[in-house]
Amino acid sequence: MKAAEVARRLATPLTAPAWAPVRSRFTDREYLNVVYRTDPEALRAVVPEPLEFDEPLVRFEVMKMGDSTSFGPYTESGQVIPVRFGEERGEYLHAMYLDNVAATVAGREASAYPKTAGSPRLFAEAGALVGTLDVGTQRVATATMGYKHYPMDLDEARAELTLPTYMLKIVPGYEREPRMCELVRTRITDITVKAAWTGPARLQLFQHVLAPLADLPVLEIVSASHIITDLTLDGVRPVFDYLKER
């Protein structure tokens, strides 16, 4: 294979890349979102400058992908933190756990999603919508919400999901120094909210050294939503270069 051809490749392994170089469209993506109040000092320790937060809130989410271009169905879970970048309000993706290798690798390599391996589930049981996250055989999180208790305004649901999203893009060098360390911005586009509900919810987080969701403890449940959508993820652009600032 000629050098010019190698230079055009976007992913490894060279002849069998782990992800397809296409933009994914998600169909029937189902969300369970639980927003809770946490310890502000714990939150301050993990939100990177220049992002700031006004209230010590965290959104625990479980997302069941009914179908997605190139990845197929899978499930994802994580923590999202409402933040400000200057005057713009958005969300910082703190951690994501999922059960699809291609989506994990593509999220990290082609973008900056903080994805790693986990076993999330989203299902209805005994009148509740249940979202769980396991790492290996260990339970890390359990969320429950009253199943379709109250209709949610679709515009409100759309606004909840389409805030600008901030992530850290960190690429290590070969001498244990970063080659790239940037804050990047993206957002959800081309979204169709098919249905949405709200209701009472509970959330339990369990201590795990490699999945430290419980480091942002649950002090009070603020709100919950169950949303079904079709959507596309936009590309990313850098908004802050930590290496230049250093």
Rank of each mutant, 00 (worst) to 15 (best):
A7Y: 13
R108V: 13
P164W: 02
S77R: 13
I188D: 05
Y242R: 04
T162H: 04
M145N: 05
A102N: 08
A201Q: 10
P114V: 10
H208P: 02
G118L: 09
V34Y: 05
A3M: 12
R139W: 09
G127R: 07
P40H: 13
A143E: 08
L168H: 03
D234P: 00
V46F: 07
P50T: 03
G86H: 05
D39Q: 08
P73N: 04
V6N: 07
A3G: 00
Q204H: 10
L10D: 10
L98C: 07
A159M: 06
K2W: 02
Q204C: 02
R237K: 10
D190W: 05
G136T: 09
R44M: 08
P238M: 06
T142F: 01
Y150S: 12
E87N: 15
H149W: 03
D28C: 14
T104F: 01
M145W: 07
R187W: 03
L154Y: 12
A195L: 08
L10H: 11
S77K: 05
I170D: 11
T162W: 00
G173I: 07
D54E: 15
P200D: 15
E30N: 13
K244R: 12
I227D: 03
A4P: 00
A4C: 04
E175K: 09
T132A: 05
T116I: 11
M167E: 15
E177Y: 06
